[in-house]
Each structure stands twice: as C-alpha cells, then as structure tokens.
C-alpha cells in the first residue's frame, strides 16, 4: 500500500547518497591519510580561508568550462579572460582609487565584455570554437601584456583591494550567489531551456526557431563573468598579477577543470549538475589541502590527478560493465544457469 511513498523515499535516499558519496568518501579517506602521517588538512587559522577560496576558484572555473563544453565548445581562453579582466580592473582601481568591491564589479563588467567579444568572434566568423578560442587566448594574453607594458601588476600594501579574499563569509556569499544565479539561469529560465534544447539537438532546435547565436554569446559572456571573478580572487589573494603568460601561458587553467567537471556531471545525475560542480570543487580542494599538508611534489600531484581523471573516465565510460562486475553478475548468471540445469535434471 505504501509502495509509491517508499519508491519516492528510495529515490531521495539514492539521490542524496549519489550526491554526497564522492566528496564525503574523498574527504574521509584524505583525512585518514593525513592523520596517519601526523598532519592535518586544516592545520592553521588560514586553512579555512584557503579552502573556501580554493572551492570558489575551482567551482567557478568548472562552471565556466562546462557551460560551453557541454555544448561542444572548447574554450581555451578561460585563463586569458581571467587575467585580462583582472589587469584592466586592477589598473583602473589602483590608478583612480577604489576598494575591493569596486575592483570586483569592474572585473565582472569587463569579464562579461571580454566573454561577449569571444562569443561574438565565434558567431561572426563561424569557425570551430576551439579555433576561435585559441585566437582569443592569444589576443587577450597579448592585450594583458601590452596594457601593462610587460610589467606585473602588484597589489602590495593595498589591503583595501584584497579585503574580500581574506574574508570567508564574503567568499561563501560569492559561491552561493554564483550557484543560485547559474541554477536559475540554466535550469529555471527560458534561456536555460533553450540552452538545453540546443545542447540536446542543435539542428532541430535551430529549425524550431531557437536563436542559437544569442544563446551562444550569452553563454560566453556568463563564462567570462565567472572567470573574471576567478581572476579577481587569484590576483587579490596573492597580491600580484603576472602578465608573463604569452604563447598560451594561460591555458593550463582549462585543463585543471576537467576532472571536477566530470565529477560534477556524475553527481548531477543524482541531483543537480551545478551543485555537482560545487561538490566536485570541494573534493578537489580536499586534495590540494592534503598535498600541501603532506608536502607532495608537484610532479607527483600531476600524476595523481591524471590517474584519477583516467580512472574516473574509465568508470564513466564503462559504468554498466563495472557495475556488473561489482555485482558479480556474470558469476551469478553462471551459478544460476548451473542450478537451473540441475533442477531440470532432477
């Protein structure tokens, strides 16, 4: 009599389990590893700030990448948008006077502009997005270098500009706000429905009248806004913007977001992919904190991250086979055939 309710409960439980299993399991395992080595991920007063900032940065980058990549648009220009928007907003704020909020708002404005220009180049030239993003990356890196005349931008002593990145509450507000806006825009708005329609079937969506061009440009602009916040957080937390990023020095940012994107997509099956990106960012930041606590060499970190990416992808691409193996399905089938055979003989 209670079967429909049970089924709903079961679904909810499954959803919660699927959503939380990866961050919780990873967090627990890494905590145990740290404890076994006599260290802790959160060893000092700054640890929480670093952690929240890491989560914010990874989450924003992952969403920025996923927005376009899910629609088949590789975007190598993410890092260059982050740097150039930070450079422009920093130059204005430091020269004309301003505080952290001013710089953040300016960063976002320029991030939207730069993203829109990137999207505009893509829709005007109608070239594969991977090509236009390479061109845009070169362009923006060159612009950042030229604007600063090849000189790094320093914030040393300008504590009024860096106020946000030293405050956990402000960064949590940024995370929550971005998450909310992203969910509303991409999951609950007409724009989002059109975005998903284009993702699922480009040709039929265009034929039904969905304006693909404006949708793409808005995606690029939103991605630019997110990366501008990343650029702002990074610049003001370390106190310097390095413009020595010519010849594709900025594209590494994109690669670091692949694993959290896949994790987020996996979690998205059980709840919401944007929430998944947040949880994936938490997972990856656990790793960063652990690497720091254990003083893991950067080459070892690279290998671990690469192996995790491949293993996770192998699982995702062969999920059914893995589940069958895990459930010992084949062995059970064999056993079942054998017992069926014996029963028949009897």
């Amino acid at each position: 009599m209670n079967t429909p309710t049970l089924s709903k409960t079961k679904k909810t439980a499954r959803g919660i389990f699927g959503t939380l299993i990866i961050p919780v399991a990873v967090g627990l395992i890494l905590w145990i590893v740290c404890a076994a080595n006599g260290v802790s991920m959160f060893s000092n007063a700054q640890s929480l700030t670093i952690f929240v900032r890491g989560v914010a940065t990874v989450m924003l980058t992952t969403i920025a990448l996923a927005i376009n990549l899910n629609s088949g648009r590789f975007d190598f220009s993410l890092g260059s948008v982050a740097t150039l928007s930070a450079v422009i907003s920093a130059q204005i704020t430091l020269n004309a006077g301003g505080n952290a909020l001013t710089m953040l708002i300016l960063s976002i404005v320029f991030g939207i502009l730069l993203g829109a220009v990137s999207g505009g180049i893509y829709v005007l030239l109608r070239l594969p997005p991977i090509i236009t993003s390479l061109g845009v990356a070169l362009l923006y890196e060159g612009l950042a270098f030229t604007i600063t005349k090849g000189s790094n931008v320093s914030f040393y002593g300008k504590t009024d500009v860096s106020g946000i990145t030293t405050n956990v509450l402000y960064m949590l507000i940024i995370i929550a706000a971005v998450l909310l806006i992203t969910i509303v825009l991409f999951d609950r708005s007409r724009f989002g429905y059109r975005y998903k329609a284009l993702m699922a079937g480009q040709k039929v969506s265009v034929n039904t009248g969905i304006k693909e061009v404006s949708n793409a440009v808005v995606c690029y602009a939103f991605s630019g806004a997110l990366m501008s916040i990343v650029g702002y957080l990074t610049a003001t937390s370390v106190g310097i913007i390095s413009v020595d990023i010519l010849n594709f020095g900025s594209i590494g940012v994109m690669f670091s977001a692949f694993l959290p994107m896949f994790i987020g997509g996996f979690i998205g099956r059980y709840s919401n992919d944007k929430l998944g990106y947040l949880l994936a960012a938490i997972t990856m930041t656990f790793f960063s904190m652990t690497y720091s606590a254990l003083s893991v060499k950067s080459s070892t970190q690279s290998i671990i991250n690469a192996v995790l990416l491949v293993v996770f992808l192998i699982y995702l691409s062969n999920e059914k086979t893995v589940k069958d193996i895990a459930a010992l399905k084949h062995i059970r089938n064999l056993f079942k055939k054998k017992t069926d055979g014996e029963t028949n003989n009897d």
Partner: peptide
C-alpha cells in the same frame, strides 16, 4: 618555493609557512 600563484596547493603551503 616557485611562483605557482594560481595553484591552490602552492597557496595552502604558503599560508602554512606564515601560520607557523
């Protein structure tokens, strides 16, 4: 050491040096 400004691990290590 080094200058991996954008890397969370590098930043965490920097913070732990100062926190010590």
């Amino acid at each position: 050491a080094l200058w991996n400004f954008g890397d969370a691990t590098w930043q965490a290590n920097l913070a732990s040096v100062v926190a010590a």
